[in-house]
Design a protein around this nucleic acid. Structure first.
Length: 279
DNA sequence: AAACCTCGCAACCGCAGTTTT
DNA sequence: TAAAACTGCGGTTGCGAGGTT
């Protein structure tokens, strides 16, 4: 089970690795990442495979710039939920938590720069607590650079007395929500979550939320129940030694296949069907 | 033209929660 | 029921591209 340190690949994924990963995710579903990592022959950790899939290869992902509507939604939801990126991402179909997180950081950096410009233009003696408009602009991260450069993070975190609003996000909202949840059953809580925040006035946001509930990214078309081939289960029950000797051969993927491959077309190729037939 | 800076993004890390054994 | 394994999340880092000096 333990892969030796030096055999683990890190860093950017190659096109070949991507194709290989997609192939195996289509076979086995987007769960059991350690298994997929091993079986695929990719020299990656399961964690790394999952991340690549979730953030880049998933067929439901949107590409390109955030639309103004999405930007608005992010701002709105962040003001309610804080840095709960995955939760926010669930309300933006096709966007990942990572993407939103990155977007937010960029957005805040810009905003902080604007603020700094403004502040230096208007008043050089402005006290940190007086920049009230910044209270919506903090990021949760500490200044990891460990210096005193006025990064977004360091500038913004200092502004409140007890706690930065955005540090965990939705300061008041969190308190209210925590209190509410105390008196809530699990079912109610789930329902509540699925309904989304109650106090949106924007119709568009509601529409969007409804859409996202319906069109939420569906898992890959693989059903574990269908793993009924005895050979397959044999594999799953193998010991480590057996495993290494019977490791699934990775599919041979030609350059031609790579170039013709679309991440939005998840039909398993003829080659792979043959390979699966062996079980 | 080169050095430096900024931005955007992909990927890694550590940790906590959940599931499996 | 406890330990181990797995999964998901949020924070952080590193790198390439493009812009600026």
């Amino acid at each position: 089970m333990v892969q030796s340190e030096e055999s683990i690949r890190k860093g950017p994924w190659t096109e070949q690795e991507d194709v290989q990963l997609v192939f195996y995710v289509n076979l086995f579903g987007d769960r059991r990442w350690d298994f997929i990592a091993k079986v695929s022959g990719l020299k990656r950790t399961g964690k790394s495979c999952r991340l690549r899939w979730v953030n880049y290869l998933h067929p439901g992902l949107k590409r390109g710039k955030m639309t103004p509507h999405e930007e608005r939604l992010v701002l709105e939801l962040h003001s309610k939920w804080g840095n709960r990126w995955s939760r926010i991402a669930r309300k933006l179909p096709g966007r990942t938590d990572n993407e939103i997180k990155n977007y937010w950081r960029t957005h805040m950096r810009k905003k902080a720069q604007d603020q700094r410009k403004k502040a230096s233009n208007n008043n050089n003696n402005l006290s940190p607590t007086s920049s009230s408009s910044l209270s919506n602009c903090s990021s949760s991260s500490s200044n990891s650079q460990g210096n005193n450069s006025p990064t977004v993070d360091s500038v913004l975190i200092t502004e409140t007395k007890d706690r930065s609003f955005y540090d965990t996000g939705g300061f008041e909202f969190d308190q209210i929500e925590a209190e509410k949840k105390k008196n809530m059953s699990n079912e109610e809580e789930t329902e509540e979550l699925e309904r989304g925040p109650k106090f949106y006035s924007m119709d568009e946001i509601w529409k969007d939320i409804e859409m996202s509930e319906d069109d939420a990214i569906k898992p890959v078309n693989y059903d574990y129940q269908k793993m009924d081939s005895p050979q397959m289960w044999d594999y799953l029950w193998m010991t480590e030694d057996e495993e290494s000797s019977k490791m699934f051969p990775p599919p041979i993927i030609t350059d031609h296949q790579i170039h013709n491959y679309s991440f939005y077309n998840h039909n398993i190729s003829q080659d792979s069907s043959n390979w699966v037939d062996r079980f």
